[in-house]
């Protein structure tokens, strides 16, 4: 069973729809029950909105321990804010994350020479770093759909699985042991995104 963690932030239906579409035989549930998360075979940690609100909602729902446990013990997929929350600290509201991974989250800024639009919104290419099983059947530099104003900075190079260029190069996917997390939205990235979710459903780590 795949548990999609619901902490009241944004629409999780598209993630759920995508799993039902690519893997109709696999049971997937949207849940805010720590017990269901603990019992799931795989856990998806999506998210949108502002990070301080996310942390507050996670704490209010007593989900922190279940999320940290899942991120260290079974196939775990973080999406967008679900990636950012895994790190130590975010400039957004100057808040501490779940500290599962080392690194910080900061806001995009335009440089003197190049104005960039914020949020970074739309389709951008992801350069693979290594051959992670979740990249199976996905071309290097494939485009995925992004929408975010903050990004992960100073991640350890050994966890970086994907990089994207927006004003500068930034980390758009990370992996460590049983955990994979991406800044883009696979559930909104057409066939490439669905392939990544499909790879996740069969990932043995």
């Amino acid at each position: 069973m795949i548990a999609i963690v619901d902490y009241g932030m944004g629409n999780l239906k598209s993630v759920h729809n995508a799993f039902k579409f690519i893997a109709p035989a696999i049971d997937s549930v949207v849940t805010s029950d720590p017990k269901v998360i603990n019992n799931a075979d795989r856990v998806v940690f999506p998210g949108q909105g502002a990070m301080p609100d996310c942390i507050r909602e996670i704490e209010e729902r007593n989900l922190k321990d279940a999320i940290i446990h899942a991120a260290q013990s079974k196939p775990f997929l973080g999406i967008c804010i679900g990636l950012q929350l895994l790190f130590e600290k975010s400039d957004e509201g100057n808040i501490e994350g779940l500290k599962i991974l080392k690194g910080n989250v900061c806001r995009f800024v335009s440089s003197k020479t190049e104005k960039i639009k914020i949020p970074h919104m739309g389709w951008n290419s992801v350069a693979h770093h290594g051959n992670h099983p979740l990249w199976a059947n996905i071309s290097n530099h494939e485009k995925f759909y992004f929408v975010h104003s903050y990004y992960v900075k100073e991640a350890n190079s050994e966890i970086v699985q994907g990089q994207t260029e927006y004003g500068q190069k930034f980390t758009s996917a990370v992996a460590k042991d049983n955990l994979f997390a991406c800044q883009f939205h696979p559930e909104k990235s057409g066939s490439a995104g669905l392939q990544l979710l499909k790879n996740f459903t069969s990932w043995t780590c």
Partner: peptide
């Protein structure tokens, strides 16, 4: 490679 312009 950079952000694509979108057609909607």
């Amino acid at each position: 490679m950079t952000l694509s312009k979108r057609i909607i």
